[in-house]
């Protein structure tokens, strides 16, 4: 097997996090940088204090080197998170979190807590949202049938978390039903 066995039917959390690194985010450069031609994008000239949109992995690297400040995405603002939390608690469906919210938040909270306002409160709300969504996902397992399951607004890391159990359960059901229908 050219791929390690554990990667044959799923992604590792690190791979999902890697993909979040491809998303774009605003930074405020702390020094001037010439245009940087990369393989996946050309990074424009940076002049402080003008905001600049770059891939998250690059933002994190500049932050680590103290060459930029990261502008957290709008959804990570406390007021937004509070309303998302409310929705999450009220609705049976998943609230509209961005697709890569969990891994993006993980990266940002680790790399630039100083750039996030009310960071402890943000952390706390994210945890509450996360737990509420986890229990909704668990309930989703009760709805698994052999045909299809809608999981709108579920995030990439959350999908990866439930993937083996949901998929294998559905697959086994599907096989049983397929046989029963053939006969």
């Amino acid at each position: 097997m050219a791929l390690p066995r554990e990667l044959e039917a799923t992604f590792s959390p690190e791979e999902i996090e890697f993909l979040a690194g491809n998303e774009y985010i605003d930074i405020v450069p702390l020094e001037t940088m010439d245009q940087l031609p990369l393989v996946s994008a050309t990074i424009p000239i940076m002049k402080p204090p003008r905001k600049c949109r770059v891939p998250l992995w690059l933002a994190l690297e500049l932050k680590r080197q103290h060459r930029a400040r990261i502008v957290p995405p709008e959804w990570l603002d406390l007021s937004n998170l509070q309303s998302l939390q409310e929705q999450e608690m009220e609705m049976d469906m998943f609230s509209k979190m961005p697709f890569r919210w969990l891994e993006t938040a993980h990266l940002l909270l680790n790399a630039c807590p100083d750039d996030i306002e009310d960071v402890e409160e943000v952390r706390r709300i994210l945890l509450t949202i996360r737990e509420a969504r986890q229990s909704k996902a668990r309930a989703g397992l009760e709805a698994v049938n052999e045909v299809q399951l809608a999981l709108d607004n579920l995030g990439a890391m959350e999908i990866n978390e439930i993937r083996p159990l949901f998929r294998e359960t559905m697959n086994r059901m599907r096989k049983i039903v397929q046989v029963a229908e053939e006969e």
């Binding site: 052999e146 045909v147 299809q148 399951l149 809608a150 999981l151 559905m170 229908e181």
Partner: peptide
């Protein structure tokens, strides 16, 4: 499936065959 249809709208997330 037999007699079962789904709609696919932009942004939808599904688990299906």
């Amino acid at each position: 499936a037999e007699n079962e249809y789904v709609t696919l709208d932009r942004g939808d997330i599904l688990l299906l065959k």
